[in-house]
């Protein structure tokens, strides 16, 4: 059964197409890597799927529900971890998680139990009652991860989840994602870090200028682009092959 279906999705901003007739559907229990250059429409897609933007053309269903009509019911069953570490940093992690948890309708005691345990697992136990304004990007990211997963969602949307995390935390988060997948959850994941996407994803979707330009497993993409790593596939497909000449020009300017 497909948990996400996107049918001829279009999004227009200021008379420009951000997304052009995108049609995709995803099965449960997969890790989906969603990649593309800056401004390709990744974040917009995720915002539409999570019901944050309701103003678009086409049909989108998540867990069998229409995102326009049932956005509240969908939001209850999904988790969203945004990229730019936006949270209320005058609160402490415990207070913030309590706030978010209650917006999901969770009981105070359950939130408290879960959040303290999860914070300890993320090595934030000692910082639990400090305000987050002094937190590093990685620490904030950990709190955001907990806030998006605490209510045990069916689908997890992550926008650049690994940015700012140290190497150990990256390994930990990758393992968490892998185990979530084993538990039957669907993970929709956008990132710039190609080798992580390459290793983690069951299916990779590349978009460029609002259009899907590649879709399939890593192996099938390799065949399609007839080149080695995902990085190479990416540059081949997004048509950005002037890197070498740009780099050459760069060097020659330095030498002047």
């Amino acid at each position: 059964m497909s948990v996400i279906t996107i049918d001829r999705l279009c999004k227009i901003y200021d008379a420009n197409y951000v997304l052009k007739y995108i049609s995709l559907s995803f099965e449960a229990g997969q890790i989906i890597g969603y990649i593309g250059p800056n401004g390709a429409g990744k974040s917009t897609t995720i915002k539409i799927l999570t019901g944050i933007i309701g103003d678009f053309e086409g049909d989108v269903t998540v867990l069998g529900m229409d995102v326009r009509k049932d956005s509240l019911a969908i939001k209850q069953k999904i988790g969203y971890i945004p990229e730019n570490a936006a949270l209320y940093d005058v609160l402490t992690p415990v207070e913030y998680l309590d706030f978010v948890g209650r917006l999901y309708g969770m009981e105070k005691q359950i939130i408290h139990k879960k959040s303290t345990e999860l914070l300890h697992l993320f090595d934030l136990g000692s910082k639990m009652d400090q305000r987050m304004s002094g937190f590093s990007k990685g620490m904030r990211q950990k709190v955001l991860l907990i806030s998006g997963l605490m209510h045990n969602p069916e689908i997890i949307f992550l926008d650049e989840p690994l940015s700012g995390l140290d190497a150990n935390a990256v390994i930990l988060v990758k393992e968490i994602l892998a185990q979530l997948k084993k538990a039957g959850k669907t993970i929709f994941y956008s990132s710039h870090i190609m080798d992580v996407v390459e290793k983690l994803s069951d299916r990779i979707v590349i978009i460029n200028k609002g259009e899907v330009i590649a879709d399939g497993t890593f192996e099938s993409l390799q065949q399609q682009a007839s080149s080695g790593s995902l990085e190479n596939i990416f540059t081949t497909l997004t048509g950005n092959q002037e890197h070498e000449s740009t780099a050459g020009a760069f060097i020659s300017v330095i030498n002047n």
């Binding site: 730019n84 936006a86 209320y88 999901y104 998006g148």
Partner: peptide
């Protein structure tokens, strides 16, 4: 605008 990012993704009408 933090509201938009923190609260909009949650099930709040």
């Amino acid at each position: 605008t933090t509201d938009n990012q923190v609260i909009l993704p949650r099930p709040v009408s």
